[in-house]
Design a protein around this nucleic acid. Structure first.
Length: 586
RNA sequence: GCGUCCGUAGCUCAGUUGGAUAGAGCACCAGGCUUCGAACCUGGUGGUCGGGGGUUCGAGUCCCUCCGGGCGCGCCA
């Protein structure tokens, strides 16, 4: 509808130009928006105000001229000038009623807007290191990324959902060492556990499974493990040095093949755990991309060579640097360390190149807010590789801070004391968690009140929306109990009987639903969909309380049920975008 | 210190690429179920949009500055 009005106004502008009433110019810029105030009609256009200056004319006078030139449309009841020069449009009953038919014809595709011109896009989200269970912070990234991907798809993009698995790197080695130490403990070898090790119970579980498979084959006596290690932090030394030495010791004692077995025991367990966790959270991926594969496939060296050949690399202090400052980053970045090992950033560059090599027109990264320092260097890397940095988009998701009894809950993965996503789901359910996470703007901090969430109180707006859906379902059950049935054709034929204020309001919201999806997609904001659902639910609850649906008048009843059915459909569609169920009873 | 995100009602937050009289939930006050599900609805109280400048027909929204907060600034991942 918004598009239609835009076309009408554009046509009027072009006509005025053709007849010399307006000076020629480029594609005119103006907006068509939904009004906030009903007295201002349904849509408002600001074209006259924006063009008045260039035309050297009074805005209201210009608006009048536009109005006189405006092509007729049976979907527009009337248009009028208001305020400083707005043109307000009132949509016709025909238009409103038409939206009902579209909803019920397109069903679960209503709101979808496939267009050839939409980009293909890869959305990478969560990508937590597989060294432990996901916690509630990852949950927000998961809910946001999954919903965003759904919305982009509905808007017509071709979407690939991707998880970057950090299956290489030091953190994973620390996990491997932690697993091995727990394994030794289970075998009766008492070894001091490092300050920097992973202390969660799941590590013991992994060790137990490892021991069940491998027996005591990987056991070494205590002195071999600990002799000559530099002191740990609590022993007056440095925890990083200590744990690195421990990793080196493990590698040496076990040998590369057996070390890999221990390493993979940790990796495989954690990855399986994450996959299951996200699956139960309604989050699905098209691709789990292995960081290690970038090294083994030669992608990392290929990326480095590419940057070298373009003259963006430099050797300094024995290391290889990417000259990121020439692309606006605040400092140059090391890609290959003095010891010959590539950095994490080297993998990032290779992965970035890989994404665009696979043909995506746009790559969206969903990062935690603590990664915002990466934006500049990734954009720099893109430029260095010859990729337009505008095709790379980074969405930051702010932290979710847990509150319990009014106090902040402190979290630390290493210490093993944190609230996991799995615990959260168990306490509030996946639906509430998914909705709660995306209710607020993703670039806004989220206060997550655990007590409130645990209590399953109806303060949680997800119930409000789901209840509206269940209420419509209840209406149709009630209908059957009364021995009546719903005749869709009769409802369709009687649509003009829908004249109540609340009915018009509901039809207006249904009409505007595709615009909600479009706005959410363009702003990368699932929260717009969540708010749209609340608005629609609110309008329905008001309607339900004000107007009886199951009336004796058969055609009127059919018309109202026709509307209710459309409302239910849109509620279900919106909930699906957010990965929330649409229950028939509650 | 530099960079970055943010500051809207007592609390938690919306506010659609600058639009008309700044909204919702919770809380508080007053009402509504012998009638389709009260997990709901109707009405009311509550604001110098952190402060101050600027841009223009028009600013919660854009620019500058100050105040207050989150996060980031390793040859870590």
């Amino acid at each position: 509808m918004k598009e239609l009005i835009r076309e009408l106004v554009l046509q009027a502008v072009l006509d005025l130009r053709r007849d010399g009433h307006l000076p020629p110019g480029d594609e005119p810029v103006f907006t068509v928006e939904r009004t906030r105030n009903k007295q201002h009609g349904d849509y408002a256009c600001n074209a006259a105000m924006l063009m008045a200056k260039a035309a050297g004319r009074n805005p209201r006078e210009l608006a009048q001229q536009l109005l006189d030139t405006l092509p007729q449309s049976r979907l527009v009841e009337r248009a009028e000038i208001a305020g400083p020069g707005f043109i307000n449009f009132f949509v016709s009953p025909t238009c409103l009623i038409g939206s009902l038919r579209r909803v019920l014809e397109q069903r679960d595709r209503y709101g979808w807007q496939p267009e050839e011109s939409r980009e293909s896009v890869t959305v990478e989200f969560v990508s937590a290191n597989p060294n432990g269970p996901l916690h509630v912070g990852h949950g927000r990234g998961a809910a946001y990324g999954a919903s965003l991907a759904n919305i982009l798809e509905a808007y017509g993009h071709k979407v690939q959902r991707e998880y970057y698995v950090n299956d290489a790197g030091r953190q994973m080695d620390i996990l491997a060492a932690s697993v091995w130490l727990r394994y030794l403990e289970l075998g009766g070898v008492q070894v001091r556990f490092p300050d920097n090790g992973y202390k969660g119970d799941y590590v013991v579980e992994i060790a137990r499974a490892l021991r069940a498979r491998e027996g005591d084959r990987l056991r070494h006596p205590m002195f071999e493990v600990t002799d000559g290690l530099p002191p740990d932090e609590s022993q007056g030394g440095d925890k990083e040095t200590h744990v690195d030495a421990l990793i080196a010791r493990a590698r040496k004692l076990l040998g590369e093949a057996d070390y890999r077995i221990v390493f993979n025991a940790g990796l495989d367990w954690c990855l399986a755990d994450i996959k299951q966790d996200l699956g139960e959270f309604g989050v699905r991926y098209d691709n789990w991309f292995s960081e290690r594969s970038l090294a083994t496939s030669g992608a990392v060296s290929k990326a480095i060579e590419t940057l070298k050949s373009k003259g963006h690399m430099e050797e300094r202090d024995g290391a290889l640097w990417f000259k990121a400052t020439q692309f606006g980053d605040e400092k140059d970045r090391v890609v290959v360390r003095e010891n010959g090992v590539t950095t994490y950033f080297a993998s990032d560059i290779a992965y970035l190149l890989n994404k665009f090599d696979r043909g995506f027109e746009r790559a969206i990264y969903v990062f935690g807010a603590d990664h915002h320092g990466y934006i500049a260097r990734l954009k720099a890397a893109a430029q260095g590789l010859g990729v337009d940095p505008a095709r790379l988009e980074i969405q930051l998701v702010q932290f979710a801070v847990l509150f319990e009894k009014g106090e902040k809950v402190q979290m630390s993965t290493r210490a093993g004391q944190f609230v996991t996503l799995r615990q959260l789901r168990a306490e509030v359910g996946a639906d509430a968690a998914r909705f709660f996470y995306v209710m607020r703007s993703h670039d806004q901090h989220l206060d997550f009140d655990l007590d409130l969430a645990r209590s399953q109180s109806n303060d949680n707006p997800v119930y409000y929306v789901q209840y509206a859906h269940a209420r419509v379902c209840a209406l149709f059950r009630q209908l059957a109990e009364k021995g009546w049935s719903f005749n869709k054709a009769a409802g369709d034929a009687a649509r003009e009987r829908l004249v109540h204020e609340q009915e018009v309001a509901l039809m207006n919201l249904l009409l505007g639903w595709p615009e909600i999806v479009g706005a959410a997609a363009q702003a990368r904001s699932p929260q717009i969909v969540a708010n749209g659902l609340r608005d629609l639910s609110s309008a329905f609850h008001s309607y339900y309380n004000a107007v009886p649906i199951l009336v004796e008048d058969e055609t009127l009843r059919a018309a109202r049920l026709y509307l209710c059915k459309a409302v239910r459909q849109v509620l279900a569609n919106g909930l699906a975008l957010l990965g929330v169920s649409a229950p028939e009873t509650m």
